[in-house]
């Protein structure tokens, strides 16, 4: 499935929620399925410090497909990371580097990707793309 198709799938999933609390219940659920970074990989250089919450990110490339694992101390942050990773995992570095994660705005979660939010997510997206650019063949 392409990045765009996966994004559309997520937009459709969120369309059924019109109550904010239900939407967040779902995000919290998604956080539990996040492909977790191994504990021994939670090193200082993989840590993205935000003022509000912290994020760990690891990137690997195999057969020209990217595979991200991550974690966060905040569960809503974890849920949003799970969405981001779901979209880009198993895609080529070139496609990941191009991705703009526009679906996040579509489902009303753009506030979490605002630079003023200081939750580490903006830096994480930047880090994902940098990793993708490095892996582009």
């Amino acid at each position: 499935m392409s990045i765009k198709a996966k994004e559309q799938e997520i937009i459709d999933e969120f369309a059924i929620y019109d109550d904010w609390m239900d939407k967040y219940e779902y995000i919290i659920e998604l956080g539990k399925d996040l492909p977790l970074i191994q504990d021994d990989l939670k090193t200082e250089d993989r840590l993205i410090k935000g003022c509000q919450s912290r994020v760990w990110l690891n990137a690997e490339t195999e057969d020209n497909k990217m595979n991200f694992t991550a974690d966060s101390d905040a569960i809503i942050t974890k849920g949003i990371i799970a969405l981001l990773i779901r979209v880009v995992n198993d895609e080529t570095p070139a496609d990941v580097a191009k991705s703009d994660f526009a679906f996040i705005k579509e489902i009303g979660l753009q506030e979490h990707l605002s630079p003023t939010r200081s939750n580490g997510l903006v830096s994480m997206v930047k880090e994902m793309k940098l990793n993708a650019l490095k892996a582009v063949k």
Partner: peptide, 13 residues
């Protein structure tokens, strides 16, 4: 619980 999560959900209320 993490303060970020609590603050985010309180805002929605």
């Amino acid at each position: 619980t993490h303060p970020y999560d609590v603050g985010t959900l309180l805002d929605k209320m």
